[in-house]
């Protein structure tokens, strides 16, 4: 899918460009934190793996891949790549069951 956006608009934004809805204020979204924290598989029963998933954070100064949920819009989760020092956003990708469909269409 292609969207007609001016060159910098997808890149210099704390307005997030939801892949489903377009560019919106970030307050329409709910922050869900570090997208690199991956839940262990459902069969995995290791306390250490779960502890790391729940509590350990890299908390980088610089680019951060993070989850936002467009709660006041389409309610889809998106992975935003954002610089934590400048707040510059360089990516906003869909996740979830719809991610594949989106990619296929684009």
């Amino acid at each position: 899918m292609k969207r007609a956006v001016a060159p910098h608009l997808g890149t210099i934004k704390m307005r997030l460009t939801c892949p489903f809805c377009g560019e919106r204020d970030h307050q329409e979204f709910t922050y869900r934190g570090d997208a690199s924290a991956k839940r262990p598989a459902i069969e995995n029963d290791s306390i250490e793996d779960h502890r790391a998933y729940v509590f350990d954070r890299a908390n980088p100064d610089g680019d951060h891949r993070e989850l936002w949920n467009h709660t006041s819009g389409c309610r889809m989760h998106v992975v935003v790549t954002r610089n934590t020092t400048t707040h510059k956003v360089t990516g906003c990708e869909p996740v979830g069951p719809w991610a594949k469909t989106m990619k296929a269409r684009s």
Binding site: G33, D56, R57, A58, N59, P60, D61
Partner: peptide, 17 residues
């Protein structure tokens, strides 16, 4: 904290800034 501790090789902590 996270950025200073990273200099010491501690990559992750239960902290977010």
């Amino acid at each position: 904290t996270s950025r200073v501790m990273k200099l010491a090789g501690v990559e992750k902590l239960p902290i977010e800034s």
